[in-house]
Simulated assay, not measured.
Amino acid sequence: MTAEKLGITACLALTDEFLRAIRVTRTKRELYELMEAVTREMGFRHFALIHHDDLTTDRSDRIDVKDYPAAIAERLIGQRRYRRDPVIRACLFAGSAFLWSDLPSIIRLDRQDHHSIEFGAREGLNEGITVPHFRLNDCPGSCTFAGAPCLLRARRYLGPAQMIGTFAFQAARRLVRAAGAPPAPPPRLHPRPRDCVVLAGRGYSNKQIARELGLTPRTVDGYLTEARRLFESHDRTELLVSAVLAGEIGLHELSRGQPG
């Protein structure tokens, strides 16, 4: 048997062993230990199984099982920069598990994104695999394995990570449901502010939004300011990500034609 086939066999065996174990996981602690073990087995240093939501307080209706460096957890969660994080933004557009090195082909990276990636690399998150998780009427989330020693090793586990990440998130959701915690109601945008947010997401300026909706630019500015306050967002990028994560607007609404 060739080395490549031996590698495939090992990946399949690891995935099968994980799936057997995850089905009988009954507590958050057991889930953490299982994720820790499979992360190390794949050659990564850290993992994160999280809902893409404000996790600054311990909420029984949200998934937050992670082994991230303290500085990364503080940046993403403590400072609530998750809405501006390039990996979390990429989850909105990637159809399946993706390598962090492939981020430029998924989203447009700006200076803040490059700074975030460099910060993560300094903390040991040099390469990773993230598996997006979306379910109707549920807050989006993801499963991430990060800190691989090399790109080739990370790419080798892209397929297993997809299956492991999907089943891990399903198991975490099962534990949340077992706790009997009702989902927190998302903030609600009124129709006109919502229209402004959608058009802003398509790249319209305030003047273009005003012309499209028959409003004054000042009114549009007020609606967008109201929306940013509602979602505690500092700029348009954070506002759009927050509105999508909260289920207020759909990604399909942002892909229609640009203004003329």
Rank of each mutant, 00 (worst) to 15 (best):
R211V: 12
H234T: 14
L230E: 04
T216F: 01
P187K: 01
T237G: 15
P185R: 04
R228A: 08
T225Y: 03
G180E: 11
A184R: 14
Q208D: 12
R173Q: 12
R218V: 14
G214K: 12
R173T: 07
G214D: 11
G203M: 07
V197C: 12
H234S: 13
P191I: 09
P183G: 09
V197R: 14
Y223C: 15
R228H: 06
H234W: 01
H234V: 14
A181M: 04
A171Y: 05
S233K: 08
V198K: 15
N206P: 00
V220I: 12
R218M: 11
G180L: 08
N206F: 02
P193A: 03
R202A: 06
P183Y: 12
V220Q: 01
P183R: 15
R202Y: 08
T219A: 15
S205D: 02
D235K: 07
A181G: 05
T237D: 14
G180H: 08
A179D: 14
H190L: 13
D221H: 07
P217T: 05
N206W: 00
E238I: 14
R218N: 08
R229K: 10
Q170W: 10
V176R: 07
D195F: 11
A200L: 15
P191S: 10
T225L: 03
E232S: 13
V198D: 12
H190I: 00
C196I: 05
H190Q: 09
P182Y: 12
P193L: 02
R236C: 00
D195C: 11
P217M: 02
P217K: 00
V198G: 13
R194I: 05
Y223W: 06
R194K: 15
A184I: 05
R211P: 00
R202C: 04
S233G: 11
Y223R: 08
R202L: 03
A179V: 00
P186W: 08
Q208Y: 03
D195I: 02
F231C: 06
V220R: 00
L189W: 04
L175R: 11
R177Q: 13
D235F: 06
V197D: 15
R202T: 05
V176P: 02
R218A: 13
L189C: 04
R192N: 06
P183L: 13
G203F: 10
A172W: 04
A171I: 05
Y204S: 05
D221W: 01
P183W: 11
P193D: 01
F231S: 05
A172I: 04
G180R: 09
R202Q: 10
R173L: 14
